[in-house]
């Protein structure tokens, strides 16, 4: 485990070398939050109601600040993996006493952490100033940090899986777009699950995507111990499942490399 912690540390330092990119992401965050505040102010104005699906205006905006924080910190590690696969570079990593997928997960988390910190700060600042209040509690923040960490692990596993898909398909970007859009929609990135029609909510609460977007944000704006514990259990279950799938896929990829040379 120490060696993967070392990978996380080095990845954080590497991420800090891309200062311009981090700042640009923060600019994106300001932009997105600005659009969301305008849109939802307008929507609440039109509806004439103080609450939509149980969310006040401030709550929905803070909810979106949290989902965006996670999304804009999420893993892009599939880009590097798929490029390494295409260039035939992955085989060379086999000479190290290290598991490649675990290495990539650690690398991805190291990259996410600095971005996560900055995004959380920026989003909170913009939304705090815009709404004039914080729609969350200290307990909510703690629950958010825990569930967001698990969300980033789950997201990194999905990203590794997408990257490894390059062993079989020529272009992995479409797979990423679809994953990303599933997060946008059924993951609850743009809308909390409570706004969905009942039948849809029943389906999506069993899918992995809501554990990455909806769960941490909801835990922040409406802290309920039972919900948080249940969600953590779900996250851990999906992390286990995806880790198993990654291991299986990696096993096959490895077989392919050592038999056919990549």
């Amino acid at each position: 485990m120490i060696r993967y912690a070392a990978v996380v540390t080095v990845a954080i330092r590497q991420q800090l070398a891309y200062r311009a990119e981090i700042v640009m992401r923060a600019v994106s965050m300001v932009l997105f939050m600005g659009v969301f505040m305008a849109l939802w102010s307008s929507a609440y104005g039109v509806s004439g109601q103080a609450e939509l699906a149980g969310y006040s205006l401030a709550e929905i905006v803070w909810y979106l600040a949290m989902t965006e924080t996670i999304t804009l910190s999420s893993s892009r590690v599939f880009v590097e993996i798929s490029e390494a696969v295409k260039a035939g570079d992955v085989a060379y990593t086999l000479t190290r006493p290290l598991s490649y997928p675990l290495y990539q997960v650690a690398y991805s988390l190291g990259g996410s952490l600095p971005r996560f910190a900055l995004n959380l700060l920026t989003a909170s600042l913009v939304v705090g100033l815009g709404m004039g209040r914080i729609a969350g509690s200290a307990a909510g923040l703690a629950a958010f940090l825990v569930t967001a960490a698990l969300a980033l692990v789950l997201d990194a596993l999905v990203a590794v899986l997408i990257g490894l898909a390059a062993f079989w398909i020529e272009e992995v970007m479409p797979a990423y777009w679809i994953y990303q859009k599933l997060l946008f929609t059924v993951g609850g990135l743009f809308l909390p699950l409570e706004m969905f029609p009942g039948w849809l909510r029943g389906v999506v609460r069993w899918l992995p995507f809501q554990f990455i977007s909806y769960v941490p944000a909801r835990a922040f704006v409406a802290f309920e111990p039972a919900f948080v514990l249940q969600s953590i259990a779900g996250q851990v279950a999906y992390i286990t499942l995806f880790a198993a799938v990654v291991a299986l896929v990696w096993h096959r990829a490895q077989r392919r490399m050592v038999l056919h040379g990549g």
């Binding site: 120490i2 060696r3 912690a5 070392a6 080095v10 006493p97």
Partner: peptide, 14 residues
């Protein structure tokens, strides 16, 4: 993007 010293440290851990 990092100095070689960082890679050396990482490899030492690995």
């Amino acid at each position: 993007h990092l100095p070689p010293a960082d890679t050396f440290d990482l490899l030492a851990r690995i």
